[in-house]
C-alpha cells in the first residue's frame, strides 16, 4: 500500500520550493525510511520493551501477574537449570566458535601458499553446511548419531565397537555431539571468510617475508594472522552469537535432554514461556541473553580492534 501512496506524497513534498542542499533532499528521507522503520519498530522494538516489562513480573500467561522486581534476573545466579543452560552454552562456544575458527584458519593459511585450481568448486561445496535448513541438519545428524546409525557402524567397522553408543541419549556425550554439529556447520564459513581475507593481503608482504627467509609458521604469525584481524573479529562475533542463541538443533535433536544435559538458554525461554507457564522468567532469560550478546559483540570488537595500527 505504501507503494501507491508514496509517489503522490513524495511529489507533494518535492514541489515545496527549491531544495536547500542540492542532491541532499531532507524531508523526503522520512517518507522513504518510514515503512521499513515502522514495521521494524512495531514487531521488534516494541516487543523488546514489552519483554523488559514482562521480565519484572511473575506471570502464568492467564491470571494477572505479580510484580517481583529483579527476582527473575536474580534466578540467573540461583536457579540451577538456568545456570547449567548457560554453562552448556560455554561448551557450545568451544564447538561453534573456537574449533571452526581454528580449523578454518589453518586450512586457509595452508592454502594461501599455493594457487588453487577449482577454488570456486571447493568453495561451493564447503559452504553447503551453512545454507542447509537447521531442522534438516538436525534430522540428518540425529540419524548419523543413532544407535544403529552410520557413526556407530563406522566405529564397529574399524574395531572401535566398544565406543559405540546412543550418542544423543548419553548424559556425557549428548552435549559435545550437538556441539560437533555446530563445528560442521561453521567451519566452511570461517574458512571461506579467511581465504577471502588472505586474498586481500598484498602479495608483496608475503614476498618480503619469504625474502627474509620466513618459513610457513613465521609467515603465518607475521603476515597472515595480522592481515586477518577484521575477518577474525567477524567470525568470532558471528559464531559466538550462533552458539549463544542455539535453539533449532537442540529442539529437534534432544529437546534439551537427556534430562537437562543439553538445555540451553533459548530452549529455557521456549519451554518456560510455552510449556510451563513461567512467562516472566522466560522474558528475563531472553533479555539476559540479549545483554550477553551485546556485551560479547562490543567486547570482542573493542578487544580485536584495539591493538590495531
Amino acid at each position: 500500500m505504501d507503494d501507491v501512496v508514496a509517489p503522490v506524497a513524495l511529489e507533494a513534498v518535492r514541489r515545496r520550493g527549491p531544495e536547500r542542499l542540492p542532491g541532499e533532499p531532507r524531508a523526503v528521507g522520512y517518507l522513504f525510511v518510514a515503512p521499513a522503520f515502522l514495521i521494524y519498530a512495531a514487531f521488534t522494538l516494541v516487543p523488546l520493551l514489552h519483554a523488559v516489562n514482562l521480565s519484572f513480573f511473575e506471570w502464568d500467561g492467564l491470571t494477572p501477574g505479580t510484580f517481583v522486581g529483579l527476582r527473575n534476573y536474580a534466578a540467573f545466579f540461583t536457579d540451577p537449570l538456568i545456570r547449567s543452560s548457560y554453562g552448556h552454552t560455554l561448551v557450545l562456544i568451544v564447538f561453534f566458535s573456537f574449533l571452526p575458527i581454528t580449523i578454518g584458519l589453518l586450512l586457509a593459511a595452508s592454502l594461501s601458499r599455493i594457487r588453487i585450481r577449482g577454488l570456486t568448486f571447493f568453495r561451493t561445496i564447503l559452504f553447503v553446511p551453512v545454507i542447509i535448513t537447521n531442522v534438516v541438519v538436525a534430522v540428518t545428524w540425529a540419524w548419523i548419531y543413532a544407535p544403529d546409525g552410520p557413526l556407530n557402524a563406522f566405529l564397529r567397522a574399524i574395531g572401535l565397537g566398544h565406543v559405540a553408543r546412543a550418542w544423543l541419549g548419553d548424559f556425557t556425550w549428548a552435549l559435545p555431539s550437538v556441539g560437533l554439529v555446530g563445528t560442521w556447520g561453521e567451519f566452511g564459513f570461517c574458512m571461506i571468510l579467511f581465504i577471502a581475507g588472505i586474498m586481500k593481503i598484498p602479495a608483496s608482504l608475503y614476498e618480503a617475508a619469504r625474502v627474509d627467509g620466513a618459513g610457513p609458521v613465521r609467515e603465518f604469525l607475521a603476515v597472515t594472522l595480522p592481515g586477518l584481524r577484521h575477518e577474525l573479529t567477524v567470525a568470532l562475533v558471528l559464531t559466538v552469537i550462533d552458539a549463544l542463541s542455539t535453539f533449532d538443533l537442540v529442539y529437534v535433536m534432544t529437546s534439551g535432554g537427556p534430562g537437562t544435559a543439553t538445555s540451553v538458554p533459548a530452549f529455557q525461554v521456549y519451554s518456560r514461556a510455552f510449556l510451563t507457564n513461567q512467562v516472566g522468567s522466560a522474558a528475563a532469560i531472553g533479555i539476559t541473553l540479549m545483554l550477553i550478546v551485546f556485551a560479547v559483540t562490543f567486547g570482542i570488537t573493542r578487544l580485536m580492534e584495539r591493538g590495531e595500527g
Binding site: F43, P47, L48, S245, A283, G286, L289
Partner: peptide, 30 residues
C-alpha cells in the same frame, strides 16, 4: 539523503541485526 535523526534510525537498525529472537519471542506471541 541527510535528515535529522537519520543516524539514530541507522543505529536502531544496526541494533536489530544482533537482537536475538529469544529476547522478543515471548511478548511477540502475546
Amino acid at each position: 539523503m541527510r535528515f535529522r535523526g537519520a543516524t539514530t534510525v541507522f543505529y536502531l537498525f544496526l541494533l536489530g541485526m544482533i537482537i536475538p529472537f529469544e529476547a522478543i519471542v515471548v511478548p511477540l506471541y502475546y
